[in-house]
């Protein structure tokens, strides 16, 4: 436990490496077990940007919850920098599909949530302003969440995660509910933030194009219970372009893996 905490606090670099060893997970549906993850082995290197793709309901988000420490796997082990994950830790922060900002807090206080919870707010107030500037919302520090648009809210959620200087940023379809223009902008922004800070990213998305534009590695999962179906490296330089013929052909390849080649 002590070792785990020390390892998580001192990753020896900006990102963490995440290892899933033979991880299976079941939900209990009225006494009947529902297997969700089936013997997943996965190693994510420090600073990698990994996108998880898979059919709807296959267990991608569950996998993220396990890595975040919000739930414990039914069997198998998950390590962050070699130490087993025992629970949630601010070095591994999640951005959910819904911004889930606290409506009773100003934007500033929402972003400051993590520092406040860890008792660091007094010493690191400036970091909150800095992060708000980073996501372009420094003028909205005193606004309430209900006054923000969907894209702005998701930016606040992103700032709320980044202010903790996470070693792993866990993104659970963070752009899923945004309009396509905001989405394209934010795809670029997230990639830039990642390249600058160097943390490890785990991204769940249902959008293959998004995964190809952003990630260095794509993991394609099977139907529930999820198994790793394909592990694809994307070694293209950034910024990437939607029309890139190589990306287009990979998109087709992945659609095939997902059993959707007919829709091409």
């Amino acid at each position: 436990m002590v070792r785990a905490a020390r390892a998580a606090l001192d990753p020896g670099g900006p990102g963490s490496e995440i290892t899933l060893r033979d991880v299976s997970h079941r939900f209990d549906l009225d006494g009947a077990p529902l297997p969700v993850l089936d013997h997943i082995d996965l190693h994510v290197a420090r600073g990698e940007f990994v996108a998880l793709l898979g059919p709807s309901g296959c267990g991608k988000s569950t996998l993220l919850r396990l890595v975040a420490g919000l739930e414990k796997p039914s069997s198998g082990e998950i390590f962050a920098d070699g130490a087993p994950i025992a629970g949630p830790h601010p070095s591994r922060v999640v951005v959910f599909q819904d911004p889930t900002l606290f409506p009773w807090r100003h934007v500033f206080d929402n972003v400051a949530l993590g520092l406040e919870a860890q008792g660091l707010l007094k010493s690191r107030r400036g970091r909150v302003d800095q992060t708000l500037r980073l996501v372009g919302l420094d003028n909205f520090a005193k606004a309430f969440p209900h006054q923000l648009s969907g894209g702005m809210s998701q930016r606040v959620a992103l700032a709320r995660a980044l202010v903790n200087d996470p070693a792993v940023l866990i993104l659970d379809e963070p752009l899923g509910k945004l309009d396509s223009l905001t989405r394209m902008t934010m795809q670029g922004e997230i990639v830039n933030l990642w390249r600058r800070a160097g943390f490890t990213v785990l991204l769940v998305t249902h959008d293959i194009e998004e995964a190809l534009l952003m990630a260095t590695r794509l993991i394609v999962l099977s139907d529930r219970p999820a198994m790793v179906k394909a592990d694809i490296r994307v070694d293209k330089p950034y910024p990437r372009h939607r029309g890139d013929p190589d990306l287009v052909s990979r998109r087709r390849e992945i659609l095939g893996l997902l059993g959707l080649e007919a829709s091409w």
Binding site: R65, A68, P88, R92, T100, E116, A117, R160
Partner: peptide, 19 residues
């Protein structure tokens, strides 16, 4: 989801109740 957010950000049980 509020609890999930707060927990991943390092909230203690007391923080979850009061904040």
């Amino acid at each position: 989801a509020y609890y999930d957010v707060a927990r991943t950000l390092g909230a203690s049980p007391a923080f979850l109740v009061f904040k």
